[in-house]
Design a protein around this nucleic acid. Sequence first.
DNA 1: AAAGTTAGTAACTGATAACTAACAACCGGA
DNA 2: TCCGGTTGTTAGTTATCAGTTACTAACTTT
Lengths: 188, 188
Amino acid sequence: MVRMSAEERRESVVRAAMSEFAHRGYYGTSTEAIAKRVGVSQPYLFRLFPNKPAIFLAAMHRCMEDTVRMFVEASEGLRGEEAVHAMANAYTKVIAEEPERLLMQMQVYVAVAAAEAAGDHTFGEAVRREWMELWDAVSIPLEGYKDTTTFLAYGMLINTLVAIGFPPEHRVWEEIYPSARVKGRLEK
Amino acid sequence: MVRMSAEERRESVVRAAMSEFAHRGYYGTSTEAIAKRVGVSQPYLFRLFPNKPAIFLAAMHRCMEDTVRMFVEASEGLRGEEAVHAMANAYTKVIAEEPERLLMQMQVYVAVAAAEAAGDHTFGEAVRREWMELWDAVSIPLEGYKDTTTFLAYGMLINTLVAIGFPPEHRVWEEIYPSARVKGRLEK
DNA sequence: AAAGTTAGTAACTGATAACTAACAACCGGA
DNA sequence: TCCGGTTGTTAGTTATCAGTTACTAACTTT
């Protein structure tokens, strides 16, 4: 058994939570499953976080933050067409290497929609704020709304196609930015 | 108590299941909740369907089918630019009038992704087949892949923006096809 | 009106969920 | 060396879940 500081442990809980929530969603993920993945007892999670929603919130925040950072880094010093290519490449690389990130994003969107519909706006406010950071991170190098919208629209389509499991050689990918052909299926 | 034929009852279960699954997802929805909405006892659901996945599958199928039909009807007799407008208008109308449909679609995508990742491809195969029907329904009047891809990409972006609750006057909507500004938030 | 079928329910089961309380092991410093 | 705070566990509670069993009420057929 490895002993860590509470802060370090919280960090590994967030990572584990991201993968678990990514695959099974908020309700489908038990705190037991997260604890097992971390290698810690389930009740101890409640020492590190006040409750389950707080764990999800932390995972959600981390997920958005990572994505924004990825776009910022990929487009650093580039403008227009070049920035589009750089960001698209970076995104497809992430999807291929850690498809959980994409799944987690989609889980975040549906979880927020559910919370909003139920009258709870705390999740929604956080996500909208973080989405705007993403938006700005993309729109600065792309210099304008039109390109930003198109770029993000294609991103959302890619998310969906990967989520429902179309293999890279399928014709649905034909007219999508070539490097966006995702290299593998989602397997556990 | 209204007595119906099993077939009619199954139909109302599918409708109720669509709304419940739309708001709370597969795991978040109890069979009890569906039964309550239908106005029938929970055990009786298991007379009408073999198990919970079967109920979800039926709801998922209905959801995709409705969407395909909507695009087919909207674009009937139209081509190119005109068809794009007609389909976009029809879609935004649906979103405004019954936002549950949009939510259910997103729930379907994440549920399928989860099932695929867990090695169960039965859901995935069904959804990919139905997605291709949607694809074809759009690509016939649009006469080509490029336009189809763009149309669907914008659709997915709209789904996401509505899901996370951006109000219609927000700047994220600025460069999106004007009629696509969705007229209200998601409320229960 | 008897015989058979279909629609529906009440009461329960074993499993699993989130969360709590009480205790134990570790570790740096006086 | 013992002391106090931090890291962790074991044992337990209460609630809810999907699914089953055993039954009743209403309609159809003969």
